[in-house]
Amino acid sequence: MTKKRKPFPIHIFVFLAPAFLVYTVFMIYPLIDSLRLSLFSTGTAGSELFVGLANYKTLLTSNNWAPRLWNAIKNNFIFFAVHMLVQNPIGLLLAALLSSKIVRGSSVYRTLIFTPTVLSIVLIGFIWRLILSPIWGISEDFLSFLGLGVLNQPWLGLESTALFTLSLVSVWQYVGIPMLLFSAALIGLPDELIEAAQVDGATAWSVFWRIKFPLILPTVGIVAVLTFVGNFNAFDLIYTTQGALAGPNFATDILGTFFFRTFFGFQLQAGNPTMGATIAGVMFVIILSGVLLYFFGWQRRLQRIEL
């Protein structure tokens, strides 16, 4: 780049301006303006009053808001934990099996297993609501088939099971994403390395955990951060199956549904844009911490190991 001042070439401006404008006006500006709004309160005549961090204080401490917020955060972490402990290991297992060179037709399996992932979660939510419905009795049939008929319950209706059930429905839908990312990483590994280990007499199990898994750690990090961002941004499944109130008794309320109820309103309660923006601010901090933790905690350390 030269330090000389030249007129900015007009064609570069023409190429960049449209994308820059749409992106700035409809994404960056709303994100910043939403953070700004969280520092304001709506006055009586619809006027906006600057209140500093008072909204955050209300949200974090007042009796009307704090229990709902902490409940949503807690549920959201449970939702995330189920994805990390169930979805990603299953994705890894399927990827390990699919990348095995003795299996033919792995692309057929891959395509079919990925099908639920492309469907709208609204439809997935309804499909599982029907399947778990005691009226239809599909889940009951299955449990008795497995000899577990006594376990049958209205899974979505009980406070103790609703959140786990919905987390598993979401896992069922999205397992295709870690599966694809892991299998791409596994297929990309150099063959010589693995063959060398096998010639040395290592079992498939130890080849996987000692050689392959450490090599795909970058993908493990990507999958974790994608899961985190996706989970803390989730909304559709809970809204579709349990409604905006995320019942029973807020047992399935996560940040997305809490945010929606607050800014948009529900039933007779009117929406509160500034408090909604405050919740978005909290979500922004949580998501940003996760992403930064990934970039500076995980990626940096991996790079140091590689060096």
């Binding site: 409809f26 500006y29 994100l31 939403s34 709004l37 941004n233 998501i287």
Partner: peptide
């Protein structure tokens, strides 16, 4: 700088700006 500015939006969900999008 512009490359980074565009990359900024990859990880941040646009839903967080919904309140302002609705006003806009």
């Amino acid at each position: 700088f512009l490359g980074l500015f565009f990359a900024l939006g990859i990880m941040i969900p646009i839903r967080l700006g919904t309140v302002s999008i609705l006003r806009l």
